[in-house]
Amino acid sequence: MSNIQRIGNTFRRTILQAIPTVIGIIVINFFLLQLAPGDAADVLAGESGSATMETVAALRARFGLDQPVLLQLVAYLDNLAHLSLGYSPRYNLPVADIIGQRLPGTVALMATALVIALAGGIALGIVMATFAGRWPDRLISIVVTLFYSIPGFWIGLMLILLFSVKLGWLPSGGAATIGADVSGFDLLIDRARYMVLPALSLSLFYIAIYSRLARAAMLEAQAQDYVRTAAAKGLSPLTITVRHVLRNALLPVTTVAGMHFGGLLGGAVVVETVYSWPGLGRLAFEAVMSRDFSVLLGILLLSSLLVIVANMTVDLVQAWLDPRIEAR
């Protein structure tokens, strides 16, 4: 079986498994949210300060919140079947529009954080494995243990303190310079400047995990017989590490990285709040506080899709990395 064919098989299998997963996630989330006390009408009424029982009832009727729960679910599923995520009573906008505004920011942040975490983690892991037991290994080991144990928001605040307040190198929050009229490469630089600190604080925890994992995987791969074969071929230590050890050592790291994608989204809530980053994490938090369930359901659906896509990507990457993994 060729490589393409093999990867194609893996792809098809994953898609088929994804459909029931998504439906299950929608239904469970829907009922879960019903358990929360209060609804959007309560919050709106509370905020207006002078709502009568009649206005609240009218609000409920308008949003369909007075319907039985099962009917609401059917209505929601009906909406989804028509590719609509529903309507937000609070923002007075279609949910798809609200999420659409926030999605690129969060995806960009998560992707950057994941890339930093993988690149940094694997690089540190290689250094640690190369110097296993000697001082570079020990030193990095201490540093990543710190990364692992310090909470993300504190790291975020400290990074702001150092790079924004003391050194003034990077902006302390937001996603772009307000009112800046830039385009092309300058735009990219502007965005990158705002991205550095949040992405870094989000990724440090994962750098810690991936570096330890990569270190262990490298050491294990180094002890394999095929590494001795490579040495007997006369290859240089660098070639052996890159060509023979690293690729085998990447397998466990990609598995774990895929599983972390959901956690990364959770961590984004904190980091987006610290850096006032206009992303989904903060939107979700606000939606919970205002009982804006249609927005929240939309976000949950989308994040479950993101996690599924991430897992699918891991499956594909693994099928590509390791020929022994085949469609079952």
Binding site: Q224, D225, Y226, R228, T229, A230, A231, A232, K233, G234, L235, H244, R247, N248, L321, D322, P323, R324
Partner: peptide, 19 residues
Amino acid sequence: RGRDIAMIFQEPMTSLNPV
């Protein structure tokens, strides 16, 4: 190594890189 003096090992199952 590999040019003037080459070597084969006991364990063919693990002596080749699986990937």
